[in-house]
């Protein structure tokens, strides 16, 4: 289903959900939950957004049933730890590549995905100062390295 333009800012979180559907359904579930909550704040009044959000809610309810055996879904505190560990793992992989001078598409994507997952952590409550800093750094690094590679420059 096409994403209404009013909900454009959740498109990357929804794409991350799609990419993790098989690899890590818990990540997919919480990315969609974040998109749902954010989408409702952005616009849940216009018919096109309501329609989109109702579909997304249907999908979340189905996923919750299918994943009911997973404690990361039935207990949000476990889910919180799962998403935080995953985000930090992504961040550390990209950071390690960065510090070793290995710049490539995969590490840019890891930095960016980590930053999106730090956004997702906000469904569990206010982000810690450390996670806010990690998110800022990961997003900046992803943009910076992407631009360097695009312009044929070596990142510093």
């Amino acid at each position: 289903m096409a994403l209404p333009p009013q909900l454009k800012s959740i498109q990357h979180h929804l794409r991350t959900a799609q990419e993790h559907e098989k690899r890590d359904p818990v990540v997919a579930y919480y990315c969609r939950l974040y998109a749902m909550q954010t989408g409702m704040k952005l616009d849940s009044k216009t018919p096109e957004c309501r329609k989109f959000l109702v579909k997304l809610m249907d999908q979340l309810e189905t996923m919750k049933k299918e994943l009911s055996d997973s404690e990361s879904i039935s207990q949000e505190i476990v889910g919180n730890a799962h998403i935080e560990n995953y985000a930090i793992k992504m961040f550390l992989y990209a950071d390690n590549e960065d510090r070793s001078g290995r710049f490539h598409k995969n590490m840019i994507k890891s930095f960016y995905t980590a930053s999106l997952l730090f956004d997702v952590l906000s469904v569990f409550g206010e982000l810690s100062e450390e996670n806010i800093q990690h998110r800022k750094y990961a997003r900046w690094k992803a943009t910076y390295i992407h631009n360097c590679l695009k312009n044929g420059e070596t990142p510093q």
Binding site: L33, K45, R50, L53, V54, M57, K64
Partner: peptide
């Protein structure tokens, strides 16, 4: 019709909020 439209919209919005709360075991 404007107010009917508005109340339909807010009822649907409410339903969505309720479903979200239920999904998160907050009811």
């Amino acid at each position: 019709t404007g107010s009917v439209g508005t109340s339909v919209a807010s009822a649907e919005q409410d339903e969505l909020s309720q479903r979200l709360a239920k999904l998160r075991d907050q009811v």
